[in-house]
Design a protein around this nucleic acid. Structure first.
Lengths: 141, 141
DNA sequence: CTCCCTCGTTTCGATTTCCGAAGCGGTCAC
DNA sequence: GTGACCGCTTCGGAAATCGAAACGAGGGAG
């Protein structure tokens, strides 16, 4: 399937508006997750796959190709995958969504839910919630 | 398919971390688009469908059910769909992504810009990308 | 050297999701 | 009545995704 690019018609939108292209690209299964899991640094194929809850390798290859094509990630000489600067920006654009998810959890689930099989919702220690890999940013959040 | 909720295991993640639930919910086709198209105010089923580039009604019903279930939208007495406060927040959390999409377009387009089977690609000012809808009434954006 | 493990990647059949068109019952205008 | 919307459902076919197996390449251990 064609990699969505701004300026082209995409799935579900005949006009190539950038946002629609982005919504197509990131609306595909696992793309956002891959972006998210690469936040802490480059990862190889199989390690990345494991982090993504062992997603199927065929789909993973497909997503990686699309993200490479969209210049959101690139491949290092040692063949690991890394976010491009553009990719890092996209990843940062995800922060508000992550924060919203926390509020969401708190709102629809005020007491009942014990998502206690992991350390969600109220902890800052896990490098996994909203924490950027890099503390030194002044960028656009 | 079960509507993703924070605190439950979701597709592709056995832990129910809120972000993963959100990524599952919004990673499904059209969900983000629906959120986006409801930004300007409540819409009925068919009008909304038309705005979403005539997506198939079956999938639309499915997405609506999930979003209702997740309390991101609700249904008015006249049966139109509207963002809940929570939904509006989610919709706002999308703004950075919309802005990123613009930068993305600007970055990767200069080179590959011959996708000329539509009218796009070189105008930089789309009136409809980040602009919150409904300028005609002073809503709270 | 062989044995074993990991790596990136491809292939293929089975399952799930999505599409798209048709149809249902309802309301309102003509 | 007819016709045009409406919210919503059904169903067959197309497409995306899954999951497991396999490939060659590389590396370390014995």
């Amino acid at each position: 399937m064609a990699t969505p690019r701004p300026g082209n018609p995409v799935r579900g939108s005949t006009t190539g508006r950038p946002l629609m292209a982005a919504l197509d690209l990131f609306g595909r299964r696992w793309s956002l997750r891959i972006l998210w899991e690469l936040r802490a640094g480059p990862l190889g194929f199989r390690p990345l796959q494991k982090r993504c809850d062992d997603m199927s390798s065929s789909v993973m290859r497909q997503r990686l190709t699309e993200l490479l094509d969209a210049q959101v990630i690139h491949q290092l000489p040692d063949s690991r995958y890394e976010l491009t600067p553009l990719g890092q920006e996209a990843r940062h654009a995800l922060n508000p969504l992550a924060r919203w998810a926390e509020r969401w959890a708190a709102t629809i689930d005020p007491q009942g839910a014990d998502h206690t099989d992991d350390q969600s919702a109220s902890r800052v220690s896990h490098p996994d919630t909203v924490g950027d890999g890099a503390p030194e940013r002044g960028s656009a959040d």
